[in-house]
């Protein structure tokens, strides 16, 4: 099986690992780097649990090969908090009880930050619900997740 050395920046750290050419970014993160915060929920690019940021844009990491991300800057759920201080989106999820089992949460949070970034000036519930289409939660339903994103929008604008 053909392999390539794939290097990128993950959460501010330069990383490098030998990976089969067919390796998806999510496999590279979880299996090559041992960073299991990014989850695989469906294997079919529907659930969004694997969402990470590549050069600041939310991407489902099961839809892209690791080698396509060579040299780029990746942020995962593990890279959001500043020490013990949670990112405003993580804090808003905690405050608003926007998680139960937590499996979808990493992808939800990464997508949610993208929603806020794309709608800095104004964000309403309808937009959040529409733009959250690519992320599935199978515990709580979406109500508190939507609430958390709207709350974080306020905090992140402040």
């Amino acid at each position: 099986m053909a392999t390539t050395t794939v290097s990128m920046t993950v959460n501010g750290k330069q990383v490098s690992a030998e990976a089969e050419n067919r390796t998806l970014l999510v496999q590279y993160l979880r299996e090559s780097l041992g960073m299991t915060g990014t989850h695989v929920g469906c294997d079919t690019s529907q659930c969004g649990a694997c969402t990470v940021h590549i050069d600041g844009l939310p991407i489902k990491s099961c839809t892209i090969l690791a080698r396509q991300v060579d040299g780029k800057d990746v942020t995962t759920i593990e890279g959001l908090a500043d020490g013990d201080t949670l990112h405003p989106m993580q804090e808003a999820f905690r405050e608003n009880h926007a998680l139960q089992c937590g499996f979808c949460t990493p992808g939800m949070v990464m997508s949610a930050i993208g929603i806020v970034e794309r709608n800095k000036d104004s964000l309403d519930e309808k937009t959040v619900r529409e733009e959250l289409e690519g992320n599935f939660c199978r515990c709580t339903g979406y109500h508190n997740i939507v609430k958390a994103i709207l709350a974080a929008h306020q905090d992140m604008a402040a």
Binding site: T36, H39, E78, A81, L86, F93, R94, G102, F103, P106
Partner: peptide, 23 residues
């Protein structure tokens, strides 16, 4: 009355341990 859940911090920071996360 809602109470803060102790497990949320690890789930929110990618430190949860699900069956698929270990060998």
């Amino acid at each position: 009355t809602p109470i803060k859940r102790r497990e949320d911090h690890r789930f929110l920071t990618g430190a949860g341990r699900y069956v698929g996360d270990f060998d």
